[in-house]
Design a protein around this nucleic acid. Structure first.
Lengths: 471, 471
DNA sequence: ACAAAAGTGTTGGCTCTACACCCATGC
DNA sequence: GCATGGGTGTAGAGCCAACACTTTTGT
């Protein structure tokens, strides 16, 4: 039993192993901190977590305990970089925490750090024999829980490997600090957290009207951050289903750069104005309309071509090799947030004419565009096609009552020629059950009168989250 | 035939009609501009476009002609708001332009403005009888093309309705300005465009080394635009498929606001640094890894809750009613561009420990987060699930060789319990033909050895654009 | 009567789901 | 042997493209 000799620790435990130190952290104390400091030089890494024991009903919520432990570890990390807070190890059973650790750091040697007070209960732990195979134990003596050699013997018989830690510091009882908790007994960083969140109210003499949650201030620390001007650029589509043409709204630029070129209608975001509000403003300046579909597309920095289509960086260069483009290092930069809009075809006519400078182009006949607007337009076009296939945007811009053929024309205009035939489209659409037959009939041309349908939002509501196919 | 009296125009044509004025615009001249000015007071609106006649081979490309016409109309619009350039009316046949106009402005009265020189050819125009039903004609006299009354009579018999315009101004021949083209014969705005794009080279005495395309300058006009600080926030996921847990990387904030809270790891964008580069930098500071999947998620202004999930504004309030939130009107604003990353599970262990301040949380057990990071996280989670279903991101973070069961575990961890059974998942995945069987076998636990597969990027390449389902 | 458009029905082929069953290994 | 996980096969249900067919209108 010489392994139980305290002084044997420093030479028996190799500095290549990982220490696992779970605790309730309710709250974490200076003793916990000192144990970590004591463990740090002896192990390659020290992993700590707050145990998630659902049976302790009186316990402070795991969130708070994790936050406090994170603060405590954060204080140490500048000196002891190898100490790590690992919330993903929070499990009800220690076995599961240890198993997770094995998955995180395969082929590592683990030492589980425990207080001597848990030894009597250890025999009944969940699958303790399996646990014994996975970790060595490092037992730290606690006052009131002297080491019982026969107990350790019986556990050793079942497969446990125990070492005794030569740690001598303050006791680690959280119960004491919780119950007799005066702020001065806690570490300052913990005390601050405790008072801010109103924990341990029963005993803590917290300032009566201390703020519980902090106001979300708007101040950010300055560094060599860049300053930006932010603009929105809109890709606005209208569907002329009768002529089978998809139209896009462009506007001609009045100033350099690209003076005289066509581009996407856009604007700079004004002080106090939201992104989406700016996008709406651009539309309202060019068009008079009441209904539309609008969503954010993509954000482009001004630096080089971004490709929103890029699938992956897999197997590529290490990420540290990503280099900052050398262009545009001067002064204020420009950021473009693009939005994508679909408006009713009728509204295309209602263009506000005075100085609007907007014009509709068929999407397959757009002129060369300013900046990278051709890319943005292509991306928006792609998004429109995808959106149509799995979401009912079409009904946002079709008239309130419509014939099924109108819907069909709309879809085939946007999605192109290789499109399903009318009768199958029809039956699929109706089977979704989101269209109401109004009973009204209408005659658009020669031929049998068509029923007018209405989109039924309440029938659609439950399908909102379902992946639907409208094709 | 009193309708042919010039002076009858002002009282016979109601100011409620729309004038349609198509031209070749090759280039548009001062005469065109004067005609528009003359038409403007007489009509509710004047619609102009550049005709798209594919038979004229020597013609300047439609793009340039549209751009020039747009510039010319732009000059007039501050005074004559009712003049509109409408490129969507560019068709080979005038009939189609007129029909499109009828779709744009239904129930309107249209007058087509033409020069007297086209009258002899008008009888052979495409479906001219139908055209006659759709528009009145307003004929402007041109030198060398005197009005032939018998010609007009015969066209009237076929259904045409003609009026004679009392316009007296310079002749409108573009051919002349093109061939005898000196810059001083053109309107200044057109001359500038022509020289910048090197049009009409044969005859134009353009400056020898005038720039053909403008440099994309980086200067923008100032208005009451807001200044922004831009940050990126990353939603970083790792899949622990063995424990069936999805992990997300959080970091604890060191400063106010929300000091001590957990939040998404982020940073401010530095001068000269691209958005994606900043996102990579954050990851590189916290983690040591070589492969990952990264894509842009969404851009949040700091103003109030945005909901990237919003389906539509359909049937809502008119867009002019969208109001700017009153919050944060002061000084510099903050914009958050969020990115979404998926990293290999093994890399989660390689956390750079020193002062990294990062920690992995199971996604269903995250603590309360700073700012609106909980919303961003939820959105990222949604995106992850969607991405998995129709794109092969999983293979970016799985090891280079993997068993099918590992893929299955990965999918069921992310997509949850109600997931297809293994054998069907297996056959569907293999049928895609994007996995190669390496022939190697591996034994993970008890049971028959599993084949190792490899993702085959070249087999996948042609499927890139196809809508695939991996579920 | 005929053409054109709306709407219904049928049929063969395909895919998906659920489940049964065989295979190869550790113990 | 038996348990465990890998891997194959199959019957039934449902879906879908293609196309024929009926109904109701305009001309």
């Amino acid at each position: 039993m010489h392994a139980l000799e305290p002084q044997s620790l420093d030479r028996d435990i190799p500095p290549t192993g990982l220490a696992l130190f779970g605790m309730s952290a309710d709250p974490p104390t200076q003793a916990h901190q000192e144990i970590m400091q004591w463990l740090a030089p002896q192990f390659q890494r020290v992993i700590v977590w707050a145990a998630d024991n659902p049976f302790k009903t009186e316990q402070t919520s795991l969130h708070h305990r994790q936050a406090m432990l994170g603060l405590l570890v954060g204080e140490l990390q500048s000196t002891y970089g190898q100490i790590q807070h690992q919330p993903a190890l929070s499990y009800p059973y220690t076995l599961h925490s240890v198993q997770a650790a094995h998955r995180y750091w395969p082929q590592s040697q683990f030492t589980l750090v425990v207080g001597s007070d848990i030894l009597p209960k250890l025999g009944q732990w969940h699958q303790v024999e399996l646990l014994f195979q996975l970790v060595d134990f490092l037992v730290l003596a606690r006052p009131g829980a002297p080491l019982d050699t026969s107990l350790i013997n019986s556990l050793t018989v079942r497969g446990g490997r125990f070492q005794l830690g030569a740690f001598t510091g303050p006791d680690i009882s959280s119960t004491v600090s919780r119950q007799a908790a005066q702020p001065e007994n806690l570490l300052p960083v913990i005390a601050q957290y405790v008072s801010q969140h109103g924990l341990y109210q029963a005993s803590l003499t917290a300032p009566a009207n201390a703020p519980r949650t902090q106001p979300p201030a708007t101040h950010f620390p300055t560094s060599d951050k860049a300053e930006f001007t932010v603009g929105v650029d809109n890709v606005v589509f209208a569907v002329d289903s009768q002529a089978n043409r998809l139209l896009v709204l462009l506007s001609q630029r009045q100033q350099a750069p690209y003076q005289g070129w066509y581009g996407l209608p856009g604007t700079l975001v004004r002080a106090g104005e939201g992104l989406e509000a700016a996008a709406y403003r651009v539309l309202a300046e060019k068009l008079a309309l009441r209904t539309l579909y609008l969503e954010q597309l993509y954000t482009f920095d001004g630096l080089g071509k971004r490709q929103p289509f890029a699938r992956s960086q897999a197997e590529g260069e290490p990420i540290n090799a990503v280099k900052t483009p050398e262009s545009v290092r001067s002064g204020i930069r420009y950021l473009s947030v693009s939005y994508f809009a679909l408006i009713p075809y009728g509204a295309a006519a209602l263009m506000v004419s005075a100085e609007a400078g907007g014009a509709w182009f068929p999407v397959h006949e757009v002129p060369p565009l300013a900046f990278d607007h051709a890319d943005i337009l292509a991306y928006g076009h792609r998004r429109l096609k995808n959106k149509l296939e799995y979401s009912p945007v079409a009904f946002d811009v079709l008239p309130p009552k419509f014939t099924l053929n109108e819907v069909y024309q709309f879809y085939s205009t946007v999605l192109g020629e290789n499109f399903a035939d009318y009768s199958n489209f029809r039956s699929r659409l109706l089977k979704l059950g989101i269209l109401q037959d109004t009973g009204e009939k209408v005659i658009r041309a020669a031929g049998r009168p068509a029923s007018l349908y209405r989109f039924d939002p309440i029938a659609f509501a439950p399908l909102q989250e379902t992946p639907l196919v409208f094709v």
